[in-house]
Write a protein that binds this DNA or RNA. Structure first.
Lengths: 311, 311
DNA sequence: GTTCCGCATGAATCGATAG
DNA sequence: ACTATCGATTCATGCGGAA
């Protein structure tokens, strides 16, 4: 994969079954503008693009605070590049939400969908990310905003989807679902059934498979670190498992603190993350697991020290 | 189909406190096309319009199967009339969801929002109705659809909203408070489903309620859910309580089986429902409580018999 | 080593105040 | 008038320290 060396890092993880090498994985984090970094990638490179771009008027320090009225114009050149580098069987997941501007929901997301279809994207589906711990507050004309859109776009009607990977609750998956049962559910069950919420929980546990819907429950990870991730790991994890297999290539053009690449690495997917903010770039680097590091074209000193001390 | 006088019914419910009349409520169900029936209502009549219009290509018998590509064009004249009859402080709740057409989500809802704003509507908010009991099924490239949009439109930035009426128990309320109650207390509460919770728990409720978010669960309002996925009573009930007070006027221009009027009646709101299908019209009539019936322009025999046997 | 309580912290939004 | 900044509001979550 082409790199200019200076502002890129790569992690190669060689896995073995017995003593047979199974996968050679790569995690690449690039510092810079995603348009500038994307043009060196060939067409049809990635199996999944999953990203949470800066919302309008937020992250103003690092992204210059795109105004709502200019958001579509700003984003369309990027989606055009993403369309190019996505494989025909690949999927693009866009996590986004419209701002309230003078009492109204702004329409830039609606317009973006319409414009992206003109570029050739297919708007396959809209998942709802239900955020249980949304921002507090009270206003006379509005409730708290507890959901965001996860828009699914594709190049073709036929695309890769591995439903079994999220249907079969393995490991902490059942645990995650359990944990995300709403409290209103628990209270309702308690008051109506009278035997606590045991019945509801046992329904989840007894089932071998959990059939998901297009509503995803996940909490934003609360800030223990200096830079807390707005993107909880479970969200990209769900889409990565759903739309890729091990060894596939994942791209996040707005990497932020590195969540997508971190999850991709944990799930044995190759990944590329692009981040324009040096501060977030460093943070993303430090979140990678120190497995085995290899450099592409010199400049080792830029890469190796950053990965120490995190596991 | 729409004939004046013949196909309309009205219910007047006089409520008393002691022997003092408190509210004089009216439930009016009209058979006919909603455009034709709406033009006799004066401007600024209704406090709330809540409806679930026929989705594109569904209910083809009654609405001639509106094609997705023609949906916006079909709906815009109606929204223009709704804008006229809505009070300046009123709210329009539109429950709608886009169909999948050749593998893609159709864009008629997005286009509808943009066009309605050109008519003068403000797109204040988009509530998500999370349907936990959504249709079963499995497709190779799609999960079950478990949510619908409830779009909130207004005429002005200032509108009536009664947030306290839909407050919900606090998140950790079950763990911290209810835990210490005995099982007999809980089961005793179960029998008093009609008014929500039992007395002893309602004491706690008064102190520990919080405002809901813009994600509505079909379980928000516990009640008899005999009607399946179509339009559960809890959904219009939630919006009627949120945006109207007793004695206010509610309109559903696509009444269907009569849920909105039925709920409005139960919540002591005046209501008008319009339904073009004779079959659904009869169903809606029969769902009204047999309180006291009055006719507008004769033709009593069309109305009275239908309401017997339901309570 | 559990369980429990206190506390800081958010992809927010409104309304008022200031330039 | 129109934009920019600030204070007030509010609650689910996870952490650390305490019982």
């Amino acid at each position: 994969m082409s790199t200019d060396g200076l502002n890129s890092s790569s992690t190669v993880n060689s896995r073995y079954v017995g003593d047979r090498p199974l996968l050679k994985l790569q995690t690449e984090i690039l510092l810079g503008d995603c348009l500038g970094k994307l043009d060196r990638f060939p067409d049809n490179t990635f199996d999944l693009i999953v990203t949470s771009p800066p919302y309008a008027d937020s992250r103003s320090k690092t992204y210059g605070g795109i105004k709502p009225d200019e958001y579509v114009e700003w984003f369309l050149p990027i989606t055009k590049e993403l369309l190019r580098v996505l494989k025909p069987t690949g999927t693009f997941i866009l996590n986004i939400k419209e701002k309230v501007v003078s009492g109204e929901r702004h329409t830039y997301v609606l317009e973006l969908i319409l414009e992206m279809r003109k570029q050739g994207w297919l708007w396959t589906e809209e998942f709802i990310w239900h955020k249980k711990n949304c921002y507090p507050g009270k206003w006379p004309n509005r409730f708290r905003d507890a959901w965001e859109r996860c828009l699914q776009f594709n190049k073709n009607k036929k695309f890769n989807m591995y439903q079994e990977s999220v249907m079969v609750p393995m490991g902490n998956w059942a645990e995650t679902r359990l944990k995300n049962l709403s409290d209103t559910d628990k209270t309702r069950d308690e008051s109506k059934v009278g035997s606590g919420f045991g019945k509801n929980i046992s329904n989840w546990l007894d089932r071998d498979k959990v059939y998901p819907t297009n509503v995803i429950h996940s909490s934003t990870e609360c800030g223990n670190k200096k830079h807390s991730a707005a993107f909880p790991k479970s969200l990209p994890a769900w889409f990565i498992k759903l739309f890729t297999q091990e060894g596939d290539w994942v791209l996040d053009p707005f990497l932020g603190s590195g969540t997508t690449c971190q999850v991709a690495q944990e799930l044995s997917r190759n990944s590329v993350g692009i981040e324009i903010s040096a501060e977030y770039y460093e943070l993303a680097l430090s979140s990678l697991k120190p497995l085995q590091y290899k450099l592409f074209e010199g400049a080792s000193e830029y890469v190796v020290p950053r990965t120490a001390g995190n596991s």
